[in-house]
Write a protein that binds this DNA or RNA. Structure first.
Lengths: 197, 197
DNA sequence: GTCTATACCTTGATAGAC
DNA sequence: GTCTATCAAGGTATAGAC
């Protein structure tokens, strides 16, 4: 029964994850999740106390799956530069980014206007911290100071967020590719000027 | 009577503009606008047929006021570089950007997940086009080709959007200032390498 | 654990008095 | 033009049968 319970719980999380991404958190209702899963509305409260609890689980799920992605980037090669390149290229191949934007960025923009700014903000930063620290780790491995590595990590995330937002607003695949290439060039410049070989 | 009508209409637009910014469009109700203006809920329908009509008016208002800002930038100096600098520095001085992000960027992220993607997307791009074309005009005045000017305009907007999003997520004023300075340096490089004096 | 039925509230929107 | 009263629909959440 534990496995069966986990299965339905997982179904809810996955459906909510998708819906929060394509419709937004506030515009996603229990009825929507019910339609997507086939589970009756009232059933959700057996697994989650409130809608915000579902959001928490979705956030955890996104952190987890993105952690997996970063792990794959880490294990694929020992070269931090190659790792960062893989990280930069990943949204460029994702078709949905053009339509719905970055799952983290758009959700953060939405939750940043939440009533309980305390709780939401902590969750948002927790998600971005995963990316931030991983990127900073790669820059650090390239030989810059920890403080500088963190600065570069934030700048990289900002560039990627700006890229995905503008690309999704204009639904402009060419801009996405061009700007992605620009970020790669920027990485090259960083390594050329700040890293001793 | 016309003036009185316009006055109340203007009150609604201003209150809605503020609420859409700090609470988001979907989470702002007629009751919220009623509380903010002191006008009864039912009264809104004398001025606007639907909630989306209020959104339209708010968008127009934002375009209008930002157009004024750009006009001020344009009239303040004849130097396109100085104009672009003023444009870049403008969000750096705005305290609310740290808390609620860019009014255009966050609203676009929210409306990009709207049901009627057709109508919303057109409005969003209309808003960003104002900024895009103004920036492209400045780059063009610096002497680059129209196509290149448009590319640079988009890149500038993307950088600023990324900057404001990350800054608001981490509520990091230092990052905002630092990244703003980085964008200014980037502008310098562009002019140095692409513009013939 | 799963499902149905429903309570209770807020929403956007309408009708009509003044 | 302004306001009150109210509607129907949809929201989250709960109670309780199975």
């Amino acid at each position: 029964m534990a496995t069966k319970g986990i299965t339905n719980r997982q179904r809810i999380i996955e459906a909510a994850d998708r819906l929060f991404y394509v419709r937004g958190y506030n515009r996603t209702s229990f009825s929507d999740i019910s339609d997507a899963t086939g589970l009756p509305r009232g059933n959700f409260y057996y697994y989650f106390k409130t809608k915000e609890d579902i959001l928490d689980a979705v956030m955890d799920s996104r952190v987890e799956s993105f952690g997996q992605m970063l792990k794959a980037c880490t294990q694929a090669t020992d070269d931090p530069h190659a790792r960062l390149l893989a990280f930069v290229r990943q949204p460029l191949q994702n078709e949905q980014v053009l339509q719905y934007g970055c799952p983290f960025g758009t959700l953060s923009a939405e939750l940043g206007k939440s009533p309980s700014a305390e709780a939401s903000r902590a969750q948002i930063t927790a998600v971005f911290d995963v990316l931030r620290h991983w990127c900073a780790g790669q820059f650090g491995a390239l030989g810059v100071t920890p403080a500088r590595a963190d600065q570069l990590a934030l700048e990289l995330l900002a560039r990627m967020q700006g890229m995905t937002l503008i690309a999704s607003i204009y639904n402009d695949r060419e801009f996405l590719q061009r700007t992605g290439a620009g970020i790669e060039s920027w990485l090259d410049e960083i390594i050329k000027h700040e890293v001793q070989a």
